[in-house]
Design a protein around this nucleic acid. Sequence first.
DNA 1: TGCGAAACAGGACACTTGTCCGGTTATGAT
DNA 2: ATCATAACCGGACAAGTGTCCTGTTTCGCA
Lengths: 209, 209
Amino acid sequence: MTKRTERNRINDPEGLRQRVLDAAYGAFCTRGYNATSVHDLKREAGATGGAFSHHYPTKKELGLAVLETRVADAVEETWIAPVRSAATAASGIAAVFEAIAQELDEQGTVSGCPLNNLALELSRQDDDFRQAIEAIFGRWRSAIADRIRADQDAGHPAPPDAEATATFVVAAYSGAMAMAKASQSAEPLRTCARLLGPMLDPNTGSGRT
Amino acid sequence: MTKRTERNRINDPEGLRQRVLDAAYGAFCTRGYNATSVHDLKREAGATGGAFSHHYPTKKELGLAVLETRVADAVEETWIAPVRSAATAASGIAAVFEAIAQELDEQGTVSGCPLNNLALELSRQDDDFRQAIEAIFGRWRSAIADRIRADQDAGHPAPPDAEATATFVVAAYSGAMAMAKASQSAEPLRTCARLLGPMLDPNTGSGRT
DNA sequence: TGCGAAACAGGACACTTGTCCGGTTATGAT
DNA sequence: ATCATAACCGGACAAGTGTCCTGTTTCGCA
């Protein structure tokens, strides 16, 4: 009785899992976790109910998977790797700010920082989410702090307190992105990058007065 | 035959409206807009369905009312008024950071900045929300910029670009609060306040090296 | 005192939410 | 070829979602 359906189905568990993760990551970033229904995700990922809940039994498990894979990777690729491989912490951070600002200009709309979006929405909703988010924030901050310490050791001009400065950089970026989202403009990002620069490289501080 | 019910009902439209606003403000701050159902709000505010939708026909209208009254007032009271009446912009901003950090320590949990929470959740969900949020951000930033300009005019040590600095202060606070929420600790707030200080009052910058 | 409008009561309404279930198909090891 | 298991199908399910509707009660005003 179910003979008439397409008889060339193949199992692709990993592929389906990735499609679901991609759909969920995109939806969570633009619409948010609570505003996204699993029904929408099934449709966008092209997954049936059975397959969906086979891989991700609950929405929460999917959310954690999105955080630990997609969101963590995004932070790694857009922040950690560029800062680590830059000439100095100051130049690397400035480059990241500018790259993201340009990206926002190109695509016209501002969805905000994925980590920050989910952090504010889910930190108090569930402690498992909170811990996953805190861990990503921690790695982000540590990567910047490591880079500043490397500058210090190499004799480059660098702020004295690496850990505190790293916290400050992450905060300035997160807040700038929040304002950018509210105004749908990359301007707050560029403004903050400009004021952050002299702080990271004390030598360039007294250029304009 | 509804005679048996309590026959001493009195109409208190303004009081009910305030109770609903209070309940909604509290719920939106701690749980978020989308995670809060109107059913919960009815119960918490002690309002029946009829009364509720008489004053706030849709959830969106209630959300906008919460933004324009409660959230706007909160920003006014905790940020704008203290900064305006402080001796200098630097001291006022430092005092606000510390006051909020102490408040977080006392109550144990960190729900985050109400404006920021709603900004990230609703800015892309509905443009009416976005505009209301952007307006509050604008007033917040302007108040700080005005205070910096007043310092400049009075000959106090002050950063040169008042508008940009104001944006930076709001961003640093918003981001610090996001990290505070993720870590459930006031420490990011204090760290950022400490690094922000020398920037607002250039004279205290070279104290420690 | 009467009357129209506002305030409120309480439930109906259609729809969506997330999860679960019995059955079917594919796949790898034997 | 056999068989256990993972992968997948498609719909059922109860509980909730936001909104609306018909009455009833209160209240300002003439």
